[in-house]
Every structure is written in structure tokens, then in C-alpha cells.
Design a protein around this nucleic acid. Structure first.
Lengths: 103, 103
DNA sequence: GCCTGATATGTCAAATGTGACATAATCAGC
DNA sequence: GCTGATTATGTCACATTTGACATATCAGGC
């Protein structure tokens, strides 16, 4: 895996901690995290483009500001389901989701 | 929403039941289900192309045959997370995931 | 018809994700 | 450097999802 990806992952709340632990991730786990982070970043971009606050998004998704913050941070405690639901609630189309994955 | 989509959804285990109930779905919920079903179908195609049984897939993702069956059926009781993890475990790339969404 | 392997369906205790809340950190305009 | 607004982080009771298991249904060869 490329170095920039490692950084990207370590930066987020995955408390990957030691390099050792990081290397302990299977390729599949790493790929999953990548997908999650891409969508998480996509969510943030979408929200900002629409000039919404996290609280406003939370209201639309019937969640809470703290959960939205965690989503955007790619926190391990949030599911892909929630991120995808939120993106859709913000009006993202399937095609936009697809683009995020390719990015 | 187009008729074929409705059929597609009703066919799956979403026990949508009456048209009334179906119409009760918000656009966001419907979009979410669409995403899920697309990936579920993608998972089945992927597995079959590789000539794997559900049990073999289950072993790879450390799940069970019954859960894999439910994934492919788009059962409401399975999360997007699990479906995506499984696809990745079968070697699907981000780009392939993206294609499934566009389909 | 009956095997045999694969897939589907139902259930449940345990694991994981959830919204809500409190509170801390950041930022912007003044 | 205050202040008000936004975002980040931690925690927890409650809800949903999980793997495992039992069991049913299906498909093809015999």
C-alpha cells in the first residue's frame, strides 16, 4: 500500500497506533477502510458545498451532530450504512457515490 | 419510481407487502434499498463467476452460509457493511463496486 | 421415487452500532 | 483575547446486526 494511504488512515480515528498494528490489517480490512474514508470525505464535501452545518445534516438524517462529526471523521464506530444513508439524504445520487469510490 | 424497480424491491425479503406500505417509503429509504440490492446482486454475480459456494464465501469472510444467503437476497437484516466487506473479500475492486452502483 | 450438495428461512444470545448528551477544541469576527 | 457558532471527542443505555445453528427447500444425477 502506498504511503499516502497509510497516512490517510492513520490520521483518522482508527487509532491504528503502531506501524505493527497497521501492518496487521489484512488487505481486505484496509480496502474496507479505504472505501469508508472515501465516502466519509465525500459526505463532508457534499455538506460543505451545500453550506450546511453538521447539526442541520443530523436533523435531516434524524441523528445527532456528534454522529455526523464521527461519520466525516471516518470513525470506526460508524457504519457504512449510516454514511450512505446520509449521503442519500443530502441528495447524492448513485452515480455520485460511484464517483467517490473511484476517487 | 419505475415499475421494474418496485417489483425488484417487492420480490426481495423486504416484506414491503402492500403498495401502501411501499409508498410509505421515503425517497431516501428507497434509494438506500436500491443501493443495497445492487450490491447484493453484484455479490451474487461475483461469487458465481468465481464458482464459489455460499459456504466458501462464508468461510472467507468469517461468517456463515445463512448470512451469505441473506446478503445475496438483500435481506433487511444485513448491513451494507457486511455486503461491502464480502465483496472486497472476494477481490472486487473499488472500481467494480462503483460500476455496480451505476448499474 | 431417493440421495447429495447447495441455497433459503427462522431464531437467538452476543457483538456492534445508535442517538443523545456533556463537554472540549476550533474558528471567525470583533 | 472574548464571544458565539461550529465541530470534535467521550460516554452510555438502547437498538440493530451478527455468527451460529437447525431446518426447510431446491436441483441434478441416479
Amino acid at each position: 500500500m502506498r504511503e499516502d494511504k497509510r497516512k490517510r488512515i492513520e490520521k483518522k480515528g482508527w487509532h491504528v497506533g503502531s506501524v505493527k498494528e497497521f501492518l496487521g490489517l489484512s488487505p481486505d480490512e484496509a480496502a474496507y477502510i479505504e472505501v469508508k474514508l472515501k465516502l466519509a470525505e465525500g459526505l463532508r464535501r457534499h455538506r460543505r458545498r451545500r453550506r450546511l452545518t453538521q447539526s442541520e445534516v443530523a436533523r435531516r438524517v434524524r441523528s445527532s451532530q456528534s454522529r455526523v462529526a464521527k461519520m466525516e471523521a471516518g470513525d470506526p464506530s460508524v457504519s457504512l450504512d449510516l454514511i450512505v444513508r446520509s449521503l442519500l439524504a443530502l441528495g447524492a445520487s448513485d452515480i455520485e457515490l460511484a464517483k467517490m469510490l473511484r476517487a
